[in-house]
C-alpha cells in the first residue's frame, strides 16, 4: 500500500452568523463537516460539488489559510494543526501550493510577471538573487510562456496566460502537491483545454499530486484518478473516476451527472431540485433528504456515514 502524501482527518469548520453591535452569534453554518481525505503521490483527486458546498473552504483549510475548528492535516510527514503558529505552517506549506480561480484577482497588478514568480522564492530565501532570476525564467518556459513576457504587467495578458503565470508561481518552490481551485472555470473552452493539458503534462513531468476542485464534472473527469463528490460540507461519494462516472451510487452524484447538457441526449432528465432552496434544512437525518428521490424512513432519523461499499468506492447513503 502506498503512503498518502496528504491525509486529512476529521477537519471541521463552522461559520458563525453574527449580528448587532456586539457581534452576538445567532447561529452557525457548517461549511466543512468532519471531512476525511487522502491524496497519494502523483495522483489527482477531483473534488466536485455545487457552489456553496464547501469545496473552496476545504482547500483553504488544508493550506491553513483559514484555521479549522478542529481536525488534522498530515502532509509529507509533517503535521499541521489549527493551533500552530504561522512560521511553522509556512515551512510545511512550501510543499503544497495553490492556483486560484480568478486569474485577474490573484496576481498583483503592480508587479511585473518576473517579480510575481520570484516572490515565493525570495520569501523562502531558497537561493541567491541571481539563481532565483534564472529559476524564474525556467518556470516561464515550463508553463509555455515566451521569455520576453518577464517584464510585462498582468493586465497585458489574457485569462489563459494569466493562469499560466499563476501556475508558474505555484511551481516555483517545487511543491509536491498543487491545490487547483477552479483553475479553468473562467476561461473560454479553447483556452480551458490548453490549461488542462498543461496541468496534465506538468504532473507527469514533475510527479505532482493534485487536488483538483471544480463544479464541472466533465473537467474533473478528464484530469482525475479519483473523484470526491461534496454536498453541504460533506463528502458523499468517493471512488475511482470510472466508477463514479459510470456507476455512481449516491443520488446526488447521479443528479449532477444527469444535469450535464450533452450532445445527443435530449430526452433523459432526472428531476433534482436546486440545493439553495433547501439550505435551511437542519434535521438529524441525511442532509440530502429534501432533494432525494429514493428516501426511506431511516433517512430522516440518522445521518449516513461515508462507508466503503465496494473496493475503493465509498458512499454516504442508507440505500446501500
Amino acid at each position: 500500500m502506498r503512503e498518502p502524501i496528504l491525509t486529512v482527518k476529521g477537519i471541521h469548520k463552522d461559520y458563525h452568523i453574527k449580528t448587532g453591535l456586539t457581534n452576538r452569534s445567532v447561529g452557525r453554518i457548517t461549511a466543512v463537516d468532519k471531512v476525511d481525505l487522502e491524496i497519494y503521490p502523483n495522483e489527482t483527486l477531483g473534488l466536485v460539488g455545487e457552489s456553496g458546498c464547501g469545496k473552496s473552504t476545504l482547500a483553504r483549510l488544508l493550506l491553513m489559510l483559514e484555521r479549522p475548528d478542529y481536525g488534522r492535516v498530515m502532509f509529507d510527514g509533517y503535521e499541521l494543526r489549527p493551533d500552530m503558529d504561522k512560521i511553522a505552517i509556512r515551512h510545511v506549506r512550501r510543499g503544497m501550493q495553490v492556483i486560484f480561480q480568478d486569474p485577474f484577482g490573484s496576481l498583483s497588478p503592480r508587479k511585473k510577471v518576473i517579480s510575481i514568480i520570484e516572490e515565493p522564492l525570495i520569501v523562502h530565501a531558497v537561493a541567491s538573487r541571481k539563481e532565483i532570476r534564472k529559476r524564474a525564467l525556467e518556470l516561464l518556459g515550463l508553463v509555455g510562456l515566451p521569455l520576453d513576457v518577464a517584464n510585462r504587467y498582468p493586465h497585458e495578458f489574457s485569462g489563459g496566460q494569466r493562469q499560466r503565470i499563476g501556475i508558474a508561481r505555484a511551481l516555483a518552490l517545487e511543491p509536491r502537491l498543487l491545490i487547483c481551485d477552479e483553475p479553468v472555470s473562467s476561461l473560454d473552452v479553447s483556452i480551458q483545454a490548453q490549461v488542462l493539458n498543461l496541468l496534465v503534462g506538468l504532473q507527469q513531468k514533475l510527479k505532482l499530486s493534485y487536488l483538483f476542485i471544480s463544479h464541472d464534472i466533465s473537467v474533473v473527469n478528464y484530469v482525475s484518478d479519483r473523484i470526491a463528490v461534496m454536498y453541504m460540507g460533506k463528502i458523499v461519494e468517493l471512488g475511482p473516476t470510472d466508477t463514479i462516472i459510470n456507476t455512481p451510487m449516491h443520488p446526488y452524484t447521479r443528479c449532477l451527472l444527469a444535469s450535464i447538457p450533452r450532445v445527443g441526449q435530449r430526452e433523459k432528465r432526472i428531476n433534482c431540485t436546486s440545493k439553495k432552496d433547501y439550505l435551511a434544512y437542519s434535521g438529524t437525518g441525511c442532509s440530502y433528504l429534501p432533494r432525494c428521490d429514493m428516501a426511506m424512513d431511516i433517512c430522516s432519523q440518522s445521518r449516513p456515514r461515508l462507508e466503503e461499499k465496494e473496493d475503493g468506492h465509498l458512499v454516504a447513503c442508507h440505500a446501500y
Binding site: S158, G160, Q161, D188, V189, S190, I191, Q192, A193, Q194, L196, N197, V200, I217, S218, V219, N221, Y222, V223, S224, T241, D242, I245, N246, L257, I260, R262
Partner: peptide, 25 residues
C-alpha cells in the same frame, strides 16, 4: 476545434488528450 476542446464525460487524460485550438482569439 471548439468540439475537440471540450472534455467528454467518460474519457480521461489517461486515454486521450483534448485538442485545444492553438493560440488565442
Amino acid at each position: 476545434g471548439l468540439m475537440r476542446s471540450r472534455p467528454v464525460l467518460g474519457k480521461t487524460a489517461k486515454s486521450y488528450r483534448l485538442k485545444p485550438i492553438p493560440g488565442t482569439v
